[in-house]
Amino acid sequence: MPRLTADVELCQGYGNCTTTASDVYDVDDDGKVVLLRQIIDDADRSRVEEATRSCPVNALRVLDR
């Protein structure tokens, strides 16, 4: 199943990922991305990939395990 990574150093808190995949991404009090899940089902992959492409600073990845 696909594995997720998020680079909090790159993250600027723009928050687009939380709109496309609010079950996977959130932001914390410092405005940095939080992964609510590290592993997703294959069925969620296209939606989460769409969320990664909505990141203006390219901080999110979907990896094959």
Binding site: G13, G15, T19, S22, V27, D28, G31
Partner: peptide, 9 residues
Amino acid sequence: PKALVACRR
């Protein structure tokens, strides 16, 4: 950003 995300939702 956290306030913005809350309002966006």
